[in-house]
């Protein structure tokens, strides 16, 4: 009798099921109406099937976002798992759209689906890429802005994985501060 190796036919399960969302800025519609769920996946193979099927971030028009969130968490501040949370934010220069954007976003996705933040991966809610004329943005959202150890670890690992130089400082801001800011910048709760 032939012995079948399970590696040959079982897809590789991820720790979490993930949902990929797409936002397209149509000013005639509400913010929520512009947000669409593309698909969900929970295996390595299905992640790539989806990733290989969709446009690279750098091909999207200005005003669009991709968001990858754990199943059950909506990519908005109001969600129960986000409302006391915040985000690590990286703003890219215009030149970086061609040089870094797609590489940074894929690396971010691999950090999430691969659970690269060890025990602190539980604090991760998702990640967002915003395509904007004035400078694209990448963010990792976490669930609680008071969890300093988790946030710091996530920020350090993310920065290292993207290959961001040590001298470049990235900041973490609470969604509450971002929502109530008066100027164009939000104060950082943490930096790495």
């Amino acid at each position: 009798q032939e012995v079948v190796n399970p590696e040959d036919y079982i897809k590789h399960p991820l720790q979490n099921r993930w949902a990929l969302w797409f936002f397209k800025n149509d000013k005639t519609k509400t913010w929520q109406a512009n947000l669409r769920l593309i698909s969900k996946f929970d295996t390595v193979e299905d992640f790539w099937a989806l990733y290989n099927h969709i446009q690279l971030s750098s091909n999207l028009i200005s005003g669009c976002d991709y968001s990858l969130f754990k199943d059950g968490i909506e990519p908005m501040w109001e969600d129960e798992r986000n409302k006391r949370g915040g985000r690590w934010l990286i703003t890219l220069s215009k030149q970086q759209r061609r040089a870094d954007l797609d590489r940074f976003w894929l690396e971010t996705l691999l950090c999430l689906v691969g659970e690269a933040f060890d025990d602190h991966s539980d604090d991760v809610c998702g990640a967002v890429v915003n395509i904007r004329t004035k400078g694209d943005k990448l963010a990792i959202w976490t669930t609680d802005y008071e969890n300093k150890d988790a946030i710091t670890h996530i920020g350090q690992v993310w920065k290292e994985r993207l290959g961001v130089p040590h001298k470049v400082i990235i900041g973490y801001q609470s969604h509450a501060d971002t929502a109530t800011k008066s100027g164009s910048t939000t104060k950082n709760k943490f930096v790495v």
Binding site: Q15, V113, G114
Partner: peptide, 20 residues
Amino acid sequence: GKRQYKRDFLLGFQFMAACT
């Protein structure tokens, strides 16, 4: 334990799905 996957392991699967 957590199902953790290293980046190179994940990258190894990128074009495998299309071949099967």
